[in-house]
Amino acid sequence: MTRFIRSHRLMLQKTASYYVMHISVAAAVAYAVTGDLWMALTLSLLEPTVQAVAFFFHEKAWARVTHNPTSMTAAGGPPPD
């Protein structure tokens, strides 16, 4: 596990900062909609937690695409024939 954390440190830090930002925005929106602080905090923790995990794997998938020259060109389209 330590090796995994070391080799993905920057991406995990990016994911953590995104998580904190997402919780803050979600809590503000949930509070504006519900007017209930407890409900806002509960809702704001559930969705961003799932999103943070999904974000990590989304970034890993895109890293594979951008590092595989046969899957996409630099312009973002399919490889030329």
Rank of each mutant, 00 (worst) to 15 (best):
A27S: 02
F56C: 03
P69L: 06
V65Q: 05
Y31P: 10
H67K: 07
F4A: 04
Y19T: 10
M11V: 09
Y19H: 15
Y19M: 11
A61K: 12
P79G: 13
S71E: 14
V29W: 00
V29G: 00
V65M: 13
T15Y: 00
S24E: 01
L10K: 05
W62V: 11
P48D: 00
V65L: 15
V53M: 07
A16P: 01
L10S: 10
H8S: 15
K60C: 11
A30F: 01
A28I: 14
A32D: 04
L46H: 04
I23W: 01
R64K: 13
W38S: 13
V53D: 02
I23N: 02
S17L: 10
A63M: 10
K60Q: 15
V50R: 07
Q51A: 15
L10F: 06
G35Q: 03
L10A: 15
D36P: 00
L10R: 05
N68T: 14
P48T: 01
A27R: 00
W62I: 10
V53F: 09
L45Y: 01
P80Q: 06
W62T: 10
S7D: 14
H58G: 15
A54L: 14
E47T: 06
A27K: 00
Q13T: 13
W38Q: 11
M21K: 09
P69K: 06
A75Y: 08
G76M: 01
A61Y: 08
V20G: 00
F4T: 03
R9G: 12
A74P: 07
A30N: 03
A63G: 15
T15G: 01
A75S: 15
G76L: 00
V50F: 12
D81G: 10
R3E: 14
N68P: 06
F57D: 05
T49I: 08
A32K: 04
V25Y: 00
A28H: 07
M11I: 05
L41A: 02
I5K: 03
R3A: 13
R3Y: 05
P78C: 07
Y31R: 03
E47N: 03
I23Y: 01
M39T: 13
T49D: 11
A32L: 08
H58F: 14
A74C: 07
K60L: 14
F57K: 04
A30C: 07
A63P: 05
H67Q: 12
A54R: 11
P79M: 06
A52L: 05
D81S: 08
M21H: 04
L12W: 00
L43G: 13
D81A: 10
N68W: 08
A26N: 10
M11T: 09
A32R: 03
E47W: 08
H8M: 06
I5R: 05
Y19C: 09
P80D: 05
A74G: 08
A54T: 12
V20E: 00
R3D: 15
L41M: 12
R64V: 10
T15E: 02
F4S: 03
S44N: 04
N68L: 13
T70K: 08
I5E: 05
D81Y: 13
A26D: 14
Y18Q: 07
S71H: 09
Y18N: 09
K14R: 09
M1S: 04
I23A: 02
T15V: 04
P80I: 02
T70L: 07
H58I: 12
M11E: 11
T49S: 09
G35P: 02
V50K: 09
T42F: 08
